[in-house]
Amino acid sequence: MKIGIVGCGGTMGRLLVQEVVAAEDCALSGGTGRPGSPLIGRDVTEQAGLKPSDLIVADDAEALFQASDAVIDLSVASAAPRHAELAAIHGVALVHGTSGLDAAQQGAVEAAAGRTAVVQSSSMSIGVNLMLELTEQVAGVLDDDYDIEIVELFHRNKADAPSGTSLALGRAAAAGRGGDLDALAIYERDGEIGPRPDGAIGFAVLRGGDSPGEHTVIFAGAGERIEIAHKASSRAIYTLGAVAAARWAVGKPAGLYSMRDVLGLA
């Protein structure tokens, strides 16, 4: 299976190149960089810290899509429409993991999904996506007697809070209860907070050290509690998941899929 990487010179792009090269059943078909980038013309694998190949970083993605069974895009939102269009034209499976798409960019991705298989997810980690599913399931089974709290720990440089994953977990919990997170969320506790409101979904944010991300969802009932925890120790989990999604998407009918589909959890 031939997998191409757009934006192969970024942090995630280089990790993706390493992941595809390491996968026994996959071959790297090439990589692209931003037009004008000093990476253009360099060796795709060498710039990712591996042995050189005969693949050169290109500034146009058309040839890459022609040479690939699947293409992974964890690059930038602005490139999403062009990559989606190329995937559709060439009938190539697309794995799209960029967040922060505007409505037009999202529309382009969805339009491409009418013509080829597109897997779109803001977290490509297999473990996180399974956790989302399990959280929704537990929230659906246990009622308000079980208080839901979400705790995260991230490295000291993470600038936003709560994390996108914490918010996704909160939405999954709210969906399981048939509620809306906006109405249930407690993002801060400070001072005279009073008793905990029934049915609330609480968040607590910790920052420190170099952790690439730990999340725990707690269902605290009378006499017992359930905890679902995910602990990342490497950013490679995101690239591992993206490659798993690419492998899954090749040969699938046109459509917009999520990591949950990839995991058989939809």
Binding site: G221, G223, E224, R225, E227, A229
Partner: peptide, 23 residues
Amino acid sequence: FFAGTGERLELTHRGTSRAIYTR
């Protein structure tokens, strides 16, 4: 524990009262 490469998932149950069994 589901201990993978670069991540792990942990599913925990804590029981603090026998009332959970009778309930």
